[in-house]
């Protein structure tokens, strides 16, 4: 008598809800920073300042968010036999692409006359720091059980 092959459990890591929550809160806080930065930029540097603050905040939140998003994307392959390879390939590949894109954007935007570099820099810094604060708060408030991804053997059934 051969036992039926056990049903494969869902092996998605338990980090998904935390990362999703962090991305949502990060987007929300970035919206607030964009508004505040846009107003300040407009007051101090006119329309250029407004546009620079919006672009800077968008860059900060997108580039900081890509890490979490790439982990979420990679976790979709949790059932794969080569999950570890896929996971680090996507996460680190995303990291590399992100930096190349960031450097290219910086070079392109450096000479744009419709931007104010100082406001842009300050809003990037504000966006990055706010994103870090949100990440830490979300993780500190998250409740993740120890040994959450363990697979327990199925209870024996009488038949």
């Amino acid at each position: 008598m051969t036992a039926a092959s056990p049903e494969r459990a869902d092996r998605t890591p338990t980090s998904n809800p935390v990362l999703g929550r962090a991305l949502r809160w990060g987007g929300l806080i970035a919206g607030i920073i964009a508004v505040v930065g846009g107003v300040l930029g407009y007051v101090f540097a006119g329309t250029e300042g407004l546009v620079s603050a919006l672009v800077g905040t968008l860059m900060a939140v997108v580039f900081m968010g890509i890490t979490g998003a790439s982990i979420l994307l990679a976790n979709r392959f949790a059932d794969s036999d080569v999950f570890v390879g896929i996971f680090f390939g996507i996460v680190l590949g995303g990291w590399l692409l992100k930096f190349i894109l960031f450097i290219v954007l910086v070079v392109v935007l450096r000479d744009a006359d419709w931007l104010n570099p100082t406001v842009l820099f300050l809003s990037i810094v504000a966006g990055v720091i706010a994103s870090l604060v949100v990440d830490v708060l979300v993780v500190a408030r998250s409740r993740m059980p120890y040994a959450s991804d363990v697979e327990l053997p199925k209870a024996p059934t009488d038949d």
Partner: peptide, 23 residues
């Protein structure tokens, strides 16, 4: 079995480290 927790800690670590590079 700790993969989920470690992923979150890794993500926080990466976020702080890359913040320096961005700035």
């Amino acid at each position: 079995e700790l993969a989920g927790r470690l992923q979150v800690l890794m993500w926080i670590g990466i976020a702080f480290t890359e913040a320096l590079a961005f700035i």
